[in-house]
């Protein structure tokens, strides 16, 4: 009989109040429920990312699975001082997707808007939130100079290395590096505006 494999009501409520970082801390204690919670929070975004890169549902699911299992195995290496848990997790999934796309040689370089365009079919709340985030990031991307946006998209969604990009675009590697750096730094500023309704997490007293 297992005490941890179910999701009792109290646990659901408790987790709902936990920050992503607190959930990863529980993951580091090999708590399966923490893994389930992380998947419920980020599984869909992670899959969307992997699908954008790999353009194949089976490979995308493989990348998501490997990314989440890497998080499961290495949660004790997560250092909250060095970044958000969501960044850490999405970086792991991204790395698996990029490794796979390079191995399978499936890389293509089409603009983001030509990506997989599946109709979303989730809960209204999920959909609204994801649509909001998507529009926010896409609008920030659109504000970047073309060359910076191109470098970021080809690297992040295309899986090209900086050397491959330099060759492809006929530019010195130094130019590519600088476009990536400036693009990411500018994106950070554009995204820095606080989101409406978002408050910092703090411990929440039990309400029952």
């Amino acid at each position: 009989m297992r005490g941890m494999s179910e999701t009792p009501r109290l646990m659901t409520r408790t987790f709902a109040h936990l920050s992503d970082e607190a959930v990863v801390a529980m993951l580091a204690r090999s708590d399966e429920s923490a893994l389930a919670e992380l998947y419920d929070r980020f599984g869909r975004v992670a899959y969307g990312l992997a699908l954008r890169i790999l353009r194949d549902e089976r490979l995308a699911e493989d990348a998501v699975q490997e990314g989440f299992l890497a998080a499961w195995r290495n949660a004790d290496r997560f250092i909250p001082e060095r970044g958000k848990a969501s960044t850490w997790l999405l970086t792991l999934v991204h790395r698996r997707a990029v490794d796979l796309v390079r191995r399978e040689d499936r890389r293509r370089a089409e603009p983001l808007t030509d990506g997989v365009d599946a109709p979303s079919s989730g809960s209204a709340e999920d959909d609204a939130w994801l649509r909001f985030e998507r529009e926010r990031v896409q609008s920030a991307l659109k504000q970047l100079p073309d060359q910076q946006r191109e470098a970021l998209e080809l690297a992040y969604y295309g899986g090209f290395t900086q050397s491959e990009l330099a060759e492809r675009l006929g530019e010195p590697v130094g130019t590519i590096k600088s476009r990536m750096f400036t693009g990411l730094a500018r994106l950070r500023e554009l995204l820095a505006d606080p989101r409406p309704g978002e408050a910092a997490w703090k411990p929440t007293p039990y309400t029952t």
Partner: peptide, 27 residues
């Protein structure tokens, strides 16, 4: 800082649902 910007790009991709089996496979 740069990783946070990079991972924000994940949200710009369309996010259809993966198959329901993926969750149970991972767990």
């Amino acid at each position: 800082e740069l990783s946070e910007s990079a991972s924000a790009l994940a949200y710009a991709a369309d996010a259809p649902r993966p198959s329901p089996e993926l969750r149970s496979r991972i767990l």
